[in-house]
Each structure stands twice: as C-alpha cells, then as structure tokens.
C-alpha cells in the first residue's frame, strides 16, 4: 500500500500545491510564466537557464514538491524512483533543433541534447543527487492506472518513494501535474494511492 504525500499542478494560468491555489499568472508567454515561477522559488541554479521548457517545468515542479514535503531529504540517494510521462515527448525542442539546421544552418548541439524527453529526469537527478530508478513514458492521456500500479510495484521492490510527473509544454500551453508517493501516509493527507484517487486529484484543478 502506498500514499500520495504531496502533489502540485502547474498550468499556464495557475499553480497549486495539494489542491490549494498558490499563485495565478497574468497572461504572458510561456517563457515569462516559467521565469516568474523560477523567480518565486528564490533559488540560484545557473544550469536552469540552459534547460528547455520541458526540463524547466519538471525542475520547478520538483522544487515545489520538495518545499511542500521537506522530509524528502531524509531518503537515501538510491531510494527515490523518478517516473515522468507526457503526450508529445520533446516535440517543442525537436522543432527548435530542426529549425537550427534547416535552410543551411548549423545544427545546435545544446538543442540536440534536449531532444530526448528523459533529459528532464537527468536534470532533476543531477540537482538532487538522486541515483534511483528512472523511466520516461509517452501516452495520449494521463495514465493514472500505469502510475498507480507501477509506483506500487517499484515501492515493493527496491525504491522507497517515487516522484512522478505528467509534464506537457506544447503549443504555448503548460499542463503539468506532479506527485510524490511514499510507503507511509507521512503527512496524513489520507490519500491512498490508487488510480481513482489519482485521477480525482489530477482533475481537481
């Protein structure tokens, strides 16, 4: 049995933690919204500015979860599995990379390295020194069944917790949902992990 110990949503208009609206955004470009979110975190991480939008949103979501659930620091470095998913892989960066060499241009190495969706997991692992299980999957819809089932499976094996993310940054829209799964209901949110519960909180905002 596993529990949802923290979750957050980020969209182009609002972000919320555990279902409570934390901030709303004045309409702006994606880059402006991402910059506003980063500034509000009040951290200095120079690598952040080099990331593509998918990695930036993944990074911010992870920081929001860590703030809401500081006990995350107590896990060992191999303990936390990171499972992320989205609809369109690295589509936005793919287009940017293609643009760099079309019409006779020179392909950009720094764009190319972000044309894999799992780079966001790498960025989060580097930032937090997490050496645990990794997996990036692609699906048309948020697959609550997969997340609930696979978190249970990994937590019964060698992982103690799982950080999950459904992260879509396409067509000038952000749709992201992050949640942290633990073996015990440490924060007593009373959210036992199953696909119905996960679907319910995913849709709640």
């Amino acid at each position: 049995m596993s529990y949802i110990s923290s979750y957050c949503h980020i969209s182009s208009t609002i972000y919320s933690v555990n279902g409570q609206v934390a901030n709303t955004f004045e309409s702006g470009t994606l880059d402006e919204i991402i910059s506003e979110l980063y500034t509000s975190l009040d951290i200095k991480y120079s690598k952040f500015h080099k990331m593509d939008q998918l990695s930036k949103i993944g990074f911010i979501g992870t920081e929001l979860i860590k703030r809401d659930f500081p006990a995350i620091d107590n896990y060992g470095e191999n303990d936390i599995a990171v499972l992320f998913a989205n609809r369109r892989s690295s589509a936005t960066t793919d287009i940017n990379f293609l643009d760099s060499y079309q019409d006779g241009g020179i392909p950009s190495p720094s764009l190319f390295v972000y044309t894999l969706p799992n780079i966001v997991i790498g960025e989060i692992s580097i930032r937090n020194k997490w050496f645990g299980e990794n997996m990036f999957t692609i699906s048309n819809h948020f697959d609550a069944n997969y997340f609930a089932n696979y978190c249970d499976i990994l937590l019964q094996k060698s992982s103690e917790a799982a950080l999950c993310g459904w992260v879509n940054v396409d067509d000038n829209k952000i749709e992201a949902f992050f949640f942290f799964i633990t073996k015990k209901d440490i924060k007593q949110l009373n959210l036992q992990l199953n696909s119905e519960k996960l679907t319910e909180i995913y849709r709640a905002i």
């Binding site: 470095e77 191999n78 990171v82 390295v113 780079i119 997991i121 790498g122 960025e123 692992s125 580097i126 937090n128 020194k129 997490w130 050496f131 645990g132 299980e133 990794n134 997996m135 060698s158």
Partner: peptide, 11 residues
C-alpha cells in the same frame, strides 16, 4: 533488471 541515474551530467 534495474536502472540507476548518474546524477552527474545530461550528456
């Protein structure tokens, strides 16, 4: 079978 991240560099 298992996996693990280097937590070192993206490329």
């Amino acid at each position: 079978g298992t996996s693990s991240n280097d937590a070192n560099h993206i490329s």
